[in-house]
Amino acid sequence: MSTSMKKNIKQFITSPTFLLFLIFIALNVYFSLATNRFFRVNNYVNIIKQSTMIMIVGCGATFLMMTESLDLSVGSNLALTNIVYTFLAVFGIPFLGIAPMPLLLAGGIVILIGAAIGLINGILITRFKFEPFIATLALLYIGRGLALATVDGQSIRTGIPDGFGSIGNDELFGIPYLFIIVFFIVVSFMLLERKSVLGKHAVAIGANRNAAFFSGINVDRVIMGLYIMTGVLAGLAGILTASRFQFGDPRTGVGFEFNVLIAVLLGGTPLSGGKGTIFGTMIGALIVAVLGNGLNAMDVVRFWQTVFQGIILIGAIIFHSQMKSRGRAKLLAAGTRG
């Protein structure tokens, strides 16, 4: 083995992503031994299905976090788009006398709604200098309120048109459409992360805002774009959830933003930005899903999962802050300033 290869392997083994991978494997082994309902092909299909929404939105959220921003409104965005999509498909726009719409049109409108929420987030944060947390929190409540108000708090379960569930449930050559869509999105975001101007600029903004500014990057525009992108992805996730379960529910996606946040953080993107990988977020999303699924299989109550989520969230942050302070200590030790 050449030394450079050895070095590469050593680098990989000591990286947080590898540790994450080990945790993932360990969880799988544990659940497989603990319950016989876990280690099955069908169950894995389920796990991936459960993680798809986190993966889709996680793509945008990872980019946001790289720039030291975050979006707490994705769950509400998902709920709003979910219910509006279903509403448009089932009822149209009654007070304008518009009949139920074709799914494609409804989908298009809903994606615009998702983008609009992202746009508002972006405007508040870049133009009015809101802290991302406050702005997106406000949108979290607004989005949820709008979703509930649209249908007066009721879910839409009747009158669902044919083909509504197709994209979320049908398969192409035995592969669910859902997987194909997620695969497509994830691959394109990986490309964006590694090969695109946007990816480089996102990293630059998070790692060194001054350097980004002096390099002529329009920081505000990048951040605005990322919020809109995340909004669009949340809108897409809204459509897919509606299709997968074949009904519209204004209460869906409660706490979804936290799942996304946890997946991104677990995936090695620190809150302070400057780095991060889509790949890491995907493993993070799988861990969240495996944990949920495995605990379910073991008959652990859903509420314990909430507790675990909290612990994981805090754990992930402490892990990052430890890594960071260690890195910084190394830097300080290396300094030779007299």
Binding site: V197, K200, V203, A204, N208, S215, G216
Partner: peptide, 17 residues
């Protein structure tokens, strides 16, 4: 004003890609 997490090449072209 360099970005630590990018490579030399990426730093050189930053903003002028």
């Amino acid at each position: 004003n360099v970005v630590d997490d990018l490579t030399t090449e990426e730093n050189l072209s930053l903003g002028q890609e």
